[in-house]
Design a protein around this nucleic acid. Structure first.
Lengths: 189, 189
DNA sequence: GTAACTTCTTGATTTTTGTCAAGAAAAGGA
DNA sequence: TCCTTTTCTTGACAAAAATCAAGAAGTTAC
């Protein structure tokens, strides 16, 4: 089994022949550090599995830049607004370091849905998980203080704080870099 | 066409015979004011179309209560964590006023997926839209001030502010009732 | 290795938002 | 209708987080 096949198998829990069929649609792609996977305003027409490297989803506002998400290995990357609804993206996706991806283009993505009966259901469940994760994020932003949000993210992905510039994590947590710095200082004392 | 059929048709854009097939699975259900559709800790095993009335999704914390969402007519209501993954709900769903629902139970919901080939794809797209909406909500909470968030919600659903106790809307917007009250006063001047 | 650049930390200060408390307004029930 | 209960508003104050500014630490490129 290739790395991609293992990922697909663990995600979707489908028979091995389906795993092979699905993964055959995905093609290797390199992304160099700083390179863009997608630029704001473009219509995203790919879906990628992130095998290695880190990516950043961000929105450029007139006054500031907002990091919506950090893409990490073993997760999928796309802009659903583009892939599913043909709408332009509000954010850019940029590589924070060199990345190895497995990418499927929209044409093949649609073919996959037609040729593999179970695909829509698998994808539905996958997107549903993403939705419930977003529900959690909204809840955290509604109910928790900056410090509690930090602890939540640190509890889930401690390694991120050594890999990603802290200013991006601060933004993703809904606080300024200064606030994150002070929270982290307090944790040490 | 019944009201339910019209809703399904407008949501999913499917042929009329499919609309009839889908809607035949949904049964009318009444919910009295204050009654619970779901209580925190229960596993949600229904999916309902909200024909009339308003509902509130909220989490009861030791110190405070957090309103995550207000359910309005012409939208679906469920807890995906329960319906799709069999997990207990973190929030309760309660009727703010008498509600008329069309409800499908999990058993029939699963049957629908098996008997109607297009169902999973329709549902996938529907959940994907919910996901992109949650992306917007997260972005708003990350990037906007309390006042901007108010204006955003008011721009989308001005009528809500006459129908729902403002304390619930304040919570859903991530602010206190006092802050919302002051923002609304400022809008008038 | 060093210069240039980026990122992080720290302090002082301001702004935003939350908390507490009391009264006003509105809604609901007998 | 009037009484009770809930919801909303307002003011005074406190706390949380943002802003501004400067310097330290860390990275990167030559």
């Amino acid at each position: 089994m290739t790395a991609l096949e293992q990922y697909i198998s663990s995600y979707f829990g489908v028979p091995e022949e389906d795993v092979a069929a699905i993964s055959s649609y995905f093609k290797p792609q390199q992304l160099r550090k700083q390179e863009y996977y997608l630029k704001a305003g473009q219509v995203c027409d790919t879906l990628s599995f992130q095998h290695s490297g880190l990516t950043r989803f961000f929105v450029q506002l007139p006054e500031k830049e907002v990091t919506q998400w950090i893409g990490t290995p073993a997760y999928f990357m796309t802009d659903l607004n583009g892939l599913m609804f043909g709408k332009p993206s509000r954010w850019s996706i940029q590589a924070l370091e060199d990345c190895e991806l497995f990418t499927i283009h929209k044409k093949d993505y649609l073919a996959l849905g037609e040729q593999m009966p179970a695909w829509h259901e698998l994808e539905k469940k996958f997107i549903a998980r993403c939705f419930t994760y977003m529900e959690d994020r909204v809840f955290n932003l509604l109910a928790m203080s900056a410090e509690q949000r930090y602890q939540w993210l640190f509890g889930q992905h401690p390694a991120l704080f050594n890999q990603v510039p802290l200013q991006f994590l601060a933004s993703m947590l809904g606080m300024t870099p200064e606030t994150l710095s002070r929270i982290r200082k307090k944790q040490l004392m």
